[in-house]
Amino acid sequence: MSMMAVAEETEMEPVVEKKSPGKALWLLAPGVIWMSLFLVLPMLMMVYVSFWTQTTFTIEPTLTLKSWITFFTSDTYLGALWTTVRIWLIVLVATVLVGYPAALFVGLFVKNKALQTVLLVLCVIPFWTSFLIRVLAWRPMLGKEGAINMILMNLGITDAPIEVLLFSELSVIIGMTQIYCVFMVGPIAFMLGRIDTSIIEAAQDLGAGFWRIFRTIILPLSMPGVVVGAIFVSVMVLGEFATSAALSGRKVNLLGNIIVTQVGSLKWAFAAVAGVVLTILMGAVVAALLRVVDLRKEL
């Protein structure tokens, strides 16, 4: 009887208290705050400071376009912008050309799952070693008395060492291609591994040659992998400065190198302008690549 009384009493009262939707908020808050304070704020600060007035050793928060004008009228800065775009395009193409055949072999031709895993792990292992050491390792390879010249001369292919191998744009391209092609191989091999081989066998039964199968089946199906790889490679190459610092002997100046030297000489506003230009460049590249493929869907 008393239970019924309680029931009557509570009957019409609507349920108001929802199961805390704020719980997710509390879990997210630390990460979101961290990213806002230490990622978004610094980036905004960079944009803001690019409009500050640069004096010899300090900057003042008086807004001006002077740094921007200096950037776009200076051959050094515009040259660096052009070099960045050029190196990025060359390295991008080089990583695809160098990485695709290896990915094709690992992702499609190796049927044994264990061997496939071993090969992929072999490709990824260098990623776990120090980036700077990998860059530096090219010096004894490419130098005038380096391994490559030594081999070439011992084989009698050349008489004198090839000097252009090190401390040139070529050495930067070689170094970057080696370091970043792993990021191209992975996604492409992943996409190729998802191809149902019975399609290819069916095409073979119909008498299609390898190139025809490659052009009509394999290449289109692997394109999302190429684009994902291109996003990885682009983001990393555009933000580069260490490889060119180590291997070009100051001959190749990327926007990243400009930022480093400007900061070194306390030209914060100029560095900020270069940073904003680099951000815009990267945003445009990534946005263009994302139009080709939906990253969230593919991964």
Binding site: L28, G31, V32, M35, S36, F38, L39, V40, L41, P42, M43, L44, M45, M46, V49, V235, M236, L238, G239, E240, F241, G256, I259, V260, V263, W268, A271, A272, G275, L278, T279, M282, V286, R296
Partner: peptide
């Protein structure tokens, strides 16, 4: 939005965040 905010952290090159952080610290 939150997903992209977080993933942005691994996409933005070190030079840019590094520079931005140095500017924030200076200011």
């Amino acid at each position: 939005v939150v997903f992209y905010l977080i993933v942005l952290g691994m996409m933005v090159p070190g030079v840019l965040v590094g520079l931005g952080m140095a500017l924030v610290a200076n200011t």
